[in-house]
Design a protein around this nucleic acid. Structure first.
Length: 585
RNA sequence: CGGGGAGUAGCGCAGCCUGGUAGCGCUCCUGCUUUGGGAGCAGGAGGUCGGGGGUUCAAAUCCCCCCUCCCCGACCA
């Protein structure tokens, strides 16, 4: 039994100044966690109880699925990461250190290599597969900017599992099993999640889905169709291309003088103001223009490549979508110095004249899916103050490819049903994806197949943010009074408040009741403090967020106590003799 | 790493502009009173004013450098 008179906790009357997001404020105010380092938190007894409940539920579901838990060192040697190429790929995001002999180590940011090597170490036959092993461990990443309390620390706990199969069919089964387990886990945690398709990015592989908790302060943006069940991370949205048009007979493109129109807005204004350029049927809009944005790709080998991206003028290039699309390269803005190195690019007036197939430059030119053959555009003429009107895609220029990285907006068409998309924010709680043979190949994991040939197994990777889940659950359940835990993860089932004078009969009565509840298997937090007033106890009970609050107070004279539901605020009087039965669940 | 804000008692803040005894509320301790919605009175404890340099008779306050925290961006689970 937890007793507030001796529990190692101190609630704060005011929000901590260094917290911004509601869950962070509430967890600190309620005495669940304390900041201990940049991006690092200490767990106090109540917080640790919640954490352990979350961890236990995840572990139970993993074990029930037949997955087996392993445990790795957090301090890892350099070699495995050298083999996979991630010693350098990870860059500044990993904590590095040396031992006394000068050997390199890292604080594990993730354990793909160790899993792969462990299987290589022990298994050598296809008969040993499939296999799923998992860990629940602390990960260390030197985040440039830790924030939002537990939602994004530099030290955090993840459940990570890896599946090993001999073929794609097996991988698909392992993937589906994880998907089913995850749905059950989040349901048990009381954490609402939206499953969205995600990029698998540089990791290769095909299927990849994220489990996002819908939280306003989340750092992931996703879309959801208002008509069908399509949902995707904004990075993974695929814009449905419009049908190609037959415009080969359209009037030839004409170069026009358009002085002082370096931006889309100025260009459209000028087009509509000029009698000779005005459209007869409607006004020109930004969507009639083709904006060519140049960025610089930094490849993993350190080389740079300019890339021109043509998007409809009413859209911008979404840097996050671009980054996701060009992995493992990174995208950087095209600086003035870069323009100086490419005099053929007239800033503000860049057009397909110098881009694309058979063009004068060797700059790769990719376009938005909306730029299909036959569409007509107003775009730069590659000379300051000049634009081309009526340029037909496929007839007058041919891009080197399609790249779907324009910003996604609410109201955009759903790629599945054509309905309308809406945008929302979320926190990534889980991620499942088919990793493929990347690590197995890099680390030389093979097994002997039935025909005596070496087979490289294919892998799946599946994560759940454990410590993050505590914050996410808090975030999605708290209210203006404080925390409000789902019973499964709450630090106790019942919070017994003694509201009476010290020395009064309520104290021993509450003790007895708490004892009986415990006997009946109910987890009890007893506020047996005789030094604080009832008002303080009520406030604390609400702040701490135990789902049921029992008040042993003035009703005791009539043989009743008050049973209050923390979430709904509903309260009812229950005869003392019936409390245990009523609360046993 | 870019832009903005902020570091003064355990927590939340004022003081800084205009240099001169370090303050307020909460918390904590002692005593008395109080006990169904963050109690009252009285007394008390607690601070190298983020760190280091400098200016000055004198620095929380002015100047320089550094560190940390928060927010927006970049990056990431």
């Amino acid at each position: 039994m937890l007793r507030l008179s001796t529990l190692f906790v101190r609630t704060l009357r005011e929000d901590p100044a260094d917290a911004e997001v509601p869950s962070h404020k509430a967890l600190v105010r309620a005495g669940y966690i304390r900041r201990a380092a940049p991006g690092g938190f200490s767990w106090l007894p109540l917080g640790w109880l919640v954490y352990r409940n979350v961890e236990r539920i995840i572990r139970e579901e993993m074990d029930r699925a037949g997955f087996q838990e392993v445990h790795f060192p957090a301090l890892l040697p350099r070699e495995p990461y050298e083999l996979s190429g991630r010693w350098t790929d990870y860059g500044d995001n990993v904590f590095r250190l040396k031992d006394r002999r000068g050997n390199d180590f890292i604080m594990a940011p993730t354990h793909e290599e160790m899993f792969t090597l462990l299987v290589k170490d022990l298994y050598s036959s296809y008969k040993d597969l499939p296999l799923v092993i998992y860990q629940i461990q602390t990960k260390y990443r030197d985040e440039a900017r830790p924030r939002a309390g537990l939602l994004r620390g530099r030290e955090f706990v993840m459940k990570d599992s890896y599946s090993f199969d001999i073929d794609d069919e097996g991988l698909a089964v392992s993937y589906q099993r994880h998907r089913d387990v995850y749905i059950k886990v989040f349901e048990r945690l009381g954490l609402p999640v939206v499953i969205v398709s995600a990029m698998s990015g540089a990791m290769g592989g095909s299927a990849s889905e994220e489990f996002l908790a819908p939280i306003d302060v989340g750092e992931d943006t996703y879309v959801r169709c208002t008509s069908c069940d399509y949902a995707a991370n904004v990075e993974a949205v695929r814009v449905p291309p419009p049908p190609a048009e037959d415009n080969v007979d359209a009037p030839p493109a004409a170069v026009e003088d358009t002085p002082d129109t370096p931006t889309i807005v100025t260009l459209v204004d000028l087009m509509n103001a000029r009698d000779d350029l005005r459209r007869s049927d409607r006004e020109w809009t930004a969507a009639d223009t083709l904006k060519n944005v140049v960025v610089k790709l930094r490849h993993p080998d350190g080389t740079f490549e300019p890339l021109a991206i043509g998007v409809p003028g009413d859209r911008d290039v979404d840097m996050k979508r671009l980054e996701a699309a060009v992995l493992p390269a990174a995208a950087e803005p095209f600086a003035d110095a870069d323009f100086a190195a490419h005099p053929e690019l007239a800033k503000g007036y860049i057009g397909p004249g110098v881009l694309g197939v058979a063009s004068s430059s060797d700059i790769r030119f990719v376009v938005d899916p909306r730029v299909v053959d036959g569409t007509r555009w107003i775009t730069g003429a590659d000379r300051p103050g000049r634009h081309v009107v009526g340029l037909v895609a496929g007839r007058d220029f041919t891009p080197d490819g399609v790249l779907d990285v324009a910003d996604v907006r609410a109201g955009d068409a759903c790629p599945d049903c054509g309905g309308s998309l809406e945008l929302a924010r979320g926190v990534e709680m889980g991620h499942i994806f088919q990793l493929g043979r990347l690590y197995a190949t890099a680390l030389g994991l093979t097994v002997l197949g039935p025909d005596g040939q070496q087979i490289t197994p294919t892998m799946g990777s599946y994560g759940i943010g454990v410590s993050r889940a505590v914050a996410a659950i808090a975030e999605t359940t708290l209210d203006e009074l404080g925390l409000c835990w789902p019973r499964q993860v709450a630090p106790a089932d019942v919070h017994v408040v003694v509201a009476a004078k010290p020395g009064s009969e309520q104290f021993p009565a509450a003790e007895r009741l708490a004892g009986e509840l415990e006997q009946a298997g109910v987890r009890v937090l007893l506020d047996d403090r005789d030094t604080v007033s009832p008002g303080v106890k009520f406030k604390d009970a609400e702040l701490l967020g135990v789902p049921t609050i029992v008040v042993v107070g003035r009703g005791l004279a009539d043989g009743v106590v008050e049973v209050k539901d923390r979430r709904t605020g509903e309260r009812r009087d229950v005869a003392l003799a019936e409390v245990v039965t009523a609360l046993r669940g």
